[in-house]
């Protein structure tokens, strides 16, 4: 497309876009600022001095809640969900390149998993464990509940990847005598690695932040979002914001690391 002149329409739309970005990031930046309130500061502006008081407060024993435990549970659960999501979606993505019986049903199952309201998944798994006489825990029932949310994203990303994937590379590998396993390991995997990192990013972050699906499936130990939710009704100090800043900081680190790795891989590939 040739260089269109930047008329009034462009600047109006650009202004709208800037407002949208402010709308997206404005609130989160205020709690970032307010988490550095002084020890006497409240939940709203003005700032009453500035300190790391509320972050220190986080690491201390809380009157309500167990920040450290719930944080490590969420992080570990996120990593497990990430690993399973990457492996299962990749394998299923390979399968969907061939015609097989039931492919349509499984595809619609994935879509259903995406559109069934989270609270139903939560209630259903909770009831199922209840009836079977099993104790729901964050590493069994909650893990399954999270996978019903992350796997459809993983599978859809794999579809998008393999729809654009030229079979010529694998044919070349096969002609050179590679076994199917070798051609997956040395040809397909390296090519789609950036997308797999993307799937992993979805797996970890969606699990780490999931609330509704965990509500009835976490058992007696809370994950971090459940803990934060509990705090919203009990805690009226900026320690809540300190927690928000910390967990958002972690999310951002994961996002930046994932995107940075993808960018690095693409650079390295372009250089070759």
């Amino acid at each position: 497309m040739h260089q269109a002149k930047r008329g009034l329409a462009f600047w109006c739309l650009a202004a709208f876009f800037v407002l949208f970005v402010l709308f997206l990031y404005g609130p989160i930046s205020t709690i970032l600022i307010l988490s550095f309130q002084g020890p006497d500061g409240g939940l709203t502006f003005p700032m009453n001095g500035s300190s790391l008081h509320w972050f220190r407060n986080l690491t201390e024993q809380q009157a309500v809640g167990d920040f450290g435990g719930s944080f490590s549970r969420s992080a570990i659960l996120g990593l497990i969900v990430m690993a399973i999501t990457v492996v299962f979606s990749f394998a299923a993505g390979l399968a969907f390149r061939n015609r097989f019986r039931g492919a349509g049903a499984i595809f619609y199952l994935a879509i259903a998993s995406l559109i069934v309201p989270s609270i139903l998944v939560s209630l259903g798994i909770g009831l199922m464990f209840n009836i079977l006489g099993l104790e729901p825990t964050w590493y069994s029932s909650a893990l399954g509940a999270h996978l019903t949310w992350t796997l459809p994203f993983g599978l859809l990303i794999m579809f998008a990847v393999f729809n654009r994937f030229s079979p010529a590379y694998e044919e070349a590998a096969r002609d050179l005598g590679a076994t199917p396993w070798q051609s997956v390991r040395h040809v397909v995997l390296p090519i789609i690695l950036p997308s797999l990192i993307g799937v992993g990013l979805f797996g970890f972050t969606l699990s780490y932040d999931e609330f509704a699906r965990t509500l009835m499936t976490a058992g007696s130990f809370n994950t971090l979002p459940l803990e934060i939710y509990g705090m919203t009704t009990n805690v009226t100090t900026p320690v809540l914001y300190a927690l928000g800043t910390t967990t958002t900081g972690l999310s951002f680190t994961v996002i930046v690391a994932a995107l940075g790795t993808v960018l690095m891989l693409q650079r390295r590939r372009a250089r070759r």
């Binding site: 492996v87 299962f88 979606s89 394998a91 299923a92 390979l94 399968a95 969907f96 061939n98 097989f100 492919a103 499984i106 199952l109 994935a110 259903a112 998993s113 069934v116 139903l120 998944v121 209630l123 259903g124 798994i125 009831l127 199922m128 399954g144 509940a145 996978l147 019903t148 796997l151 599978l155 199917p180």
Partner: peptide, 21 residues
Amino acid sequence: RPYLQVAPLTAVFVLFLVIPI
């Protein structure tokens, strides 16, 4: 092969979506 590749994903959906519903 495709059945084996798609089995883990399907198992998760059956166990944690279909049966719960």
